[in-house]
Design a protein around this nucleic acid. Structure first.
Lengths: 344, 344
DNA sequence: TTGAAAGCGCTAACAT
DNA sequence: ATGTTAGCGCTTTCAA
């Protein structure tokens, strides 16, 4: 195959443009990157040639020089979870605004895959990565952080090499417990997420602490482990309700778990909040339309994504900037799934 | 130690490795791309040098030569919709298996943004793109298809330049109508998606045709336009139920709409399927846990993503392969939200 | 303000 | 089987 001959069929390059406009490639490059440094007359000529040839610069070649690709990655445990989807949307919309694209990684709850992501991310064409709500605690981000910018969502102990953004689970849990107590509940059950995930462990711990600081007892059977989805919630509440006695209120580790619990309880003939109360935790977009509408926390999923993205952008621009660690507040959002205790 | 110019601190390149191993860069490149073409002894030496130097090839430089980046894009109207999320998951898992990453674009239902995507995709570092369930009919893919591989999901008339994959909405709708008729229903309402989206228009058309071929009348007031989410369904069913008379059964254009309708109907005091029947359409992962569990179609979201990805892979490998057009079957999945007609 | 030319890190055609 | 070298398309000194 004879090397390159210009003008025929091929995608135009910066050289094609420079020849068509009768200037050097450097000048074309300048009108691309620093237009004002080129005299107006020539600049216009170049611009016209570009338009005429339907030219657009090759992002790969550009990246080879600049070492910037304007691509970020986000890794999540479950893209089907609408809470996480809202985080992703927050990330996408913020980054897109700055001309960044986003690569998506979904571990589908597999710790194995999470580990693989960290490994594989090293060789990806990206400027930075956001790691959200990952299950395992043992992930080591430091090596990755040495190569690229990383911000970690919802993993407060991720290490000092990365920017951190997390919601105040502990405080939110306390508000939920206090809300239930103010309604007269004393015996409160917890529908936890799986214990092999950090979220499950952390929220369970928060629950225990919140109960403790409210002066309430928690015994092991007050906590039931559930998968992080509707099915898990349905199964979890069924376990509780098939005992001879059970709590008058339940806090769920996620809205999805709560909504599943609501459905199962309903089909077992219970009515909520008449028979008992249930809360969610992370504010799924559906929770407003569950039966009945779910009391939960004002978990700012979209905003979390947005702030994480801003954080990443900042770090990409100035890798030496001081580290960010931000905790977000979690007010309670009272709806209809919680009500006065039916006992005493 | 590599006693060349600057062997320190810098990220190792193929040249660093070649010097360390005492071979040419070509040999190093070969052990990367065609290991068997290098004699075992040298190959091992190179491999060891790579390990020792902690070398990994720069994907950008590689892409510059090969014109392949192993990145695909997927564009969807709403990432928060779990049906679409499952499509995305199908795409991701299939492509990841082949070493491809996926860029995500979410239009958040904005036709404006959909248009922008098509525009902007031209200059992205990608090998191909999957466009799913996009709202507007007027998108012109041909220019894009000239530059990159594109497969379009759920847009049967997207043009002959692209591979097509779509569900048999018309057939599925017929099965839903027939199911309802077999339960004694004669007056059926339709909770449509928005008419400014192709999906809304197409499913409404399918509904009318299905009714017609079942010998049933459809009048304009049997069709109510809803936003594609729970709120839309709640609003839509409320519009129906506040009339003096209304249908004995409803088909929704999506599961989300149906679940919203269920919630609203419930809170207005209706019981389903005692008072009337409701169906969904696109098999959201939640629909099994709605109250009551939703009758819907076996819409194979994950598989759609998977097949679209396979289709894209195939086209990326051989751009000249014959065009694929595939229609997927939609069996009905009967659960508890439909029951016998309560009237005569 | 502009142009010439040296890379960026890798692949592949051509030689040996 | 292995080495040499010419690019891939762009940015960026350095001179002019």
């Amino acid at each position: 195959m004879p090397p390159k001959k210009k003008g025929n069929g091929q995608k135009p390059t910066i050289r094609t443009v420079s020849e068509h406009a009768g200037v050097s490639v450097a000048t074309v490059s300048r009108v691309l990157n620093a237009p004002l440094s080129v005299k107006e007359e020539r600049r216009n000529r170049v611009l016209e040639s570009m338009k005429f040839l339907n030219y657009s610069p090759d992002p790969v070649a550009r990246a080879l020089c600049t070492h910037r690709v304007r691509v970020a990655a986000i890794a999540v445990p479950n893209i089907v979870n609408p809470c996480l989807a809202e985080v992703i949307r927050g990330v996408i919309e913020t980054l897109e605004h700055k001309g960044f694209d986003v690569l998506i990684f979904d571990s589908n709850q597999s710790i194995e895959r999470e580990r693989m992501f960290i490994e594989v991310l090293h060789n990806k064409i990206i400027d930075g990565v956001i790691i959200a709500a990952i299950s395992t605690k043992e992930l080591n981000y430091s090596e990755l952080a040495a190569k690229t910018s990383v911000v970690v969502i919802d993993h407060p102990e991720a290490g000092h090499e990365v920017d951190l953004l997390y919601a105040d689970d502990r405080g939110g849990m306390q508000r939920l417990v206090d809300h239930l107590i103010s309604l007269g509940h004393r015996k409160i059950g917890f529908l936890s997420g799986t214990f092999n995930s950090m979220g499950g462990v952390r929220r369970t711990e928060s629950f225990k602490l919140a109960m403790q600081s409210a002066g309430l007892e928690t015994s092991p059977e007050d906590i039931v482990e559930c998968e992080w989805n509707l099915y898990g919630g349905a199964k979890g509440i069924t376990a509780f309700l098939s005992r001879k006695t059970f709590p008058t209120a339940f806090i769920s580790a996620s809205d999805l778990i709560a909504i599943g619990a609501l459905g199962a309880a309903y089909s077992m003939g219970f009515r909520i909040p008449r028979d008992f109360s249930i809360t969610g935790f992370d504010h799924a977009p559906w929770s407003e339309f569950s039966i009945p509408p779910l009391t939960t926390l004002e978990y700012p999923n979209y905003r979390i994504g947005k702030e994480a993205a801003e954080c990443l952008l900042r770090r990409v621009d100035s890798p030496q900037a001081p580290r960010i660690v931000k905790k977000l507040d979690l007010p309670v959002m009272i709806r209809k799934s919680t009500g006065p205790c039916s006992l005493g």
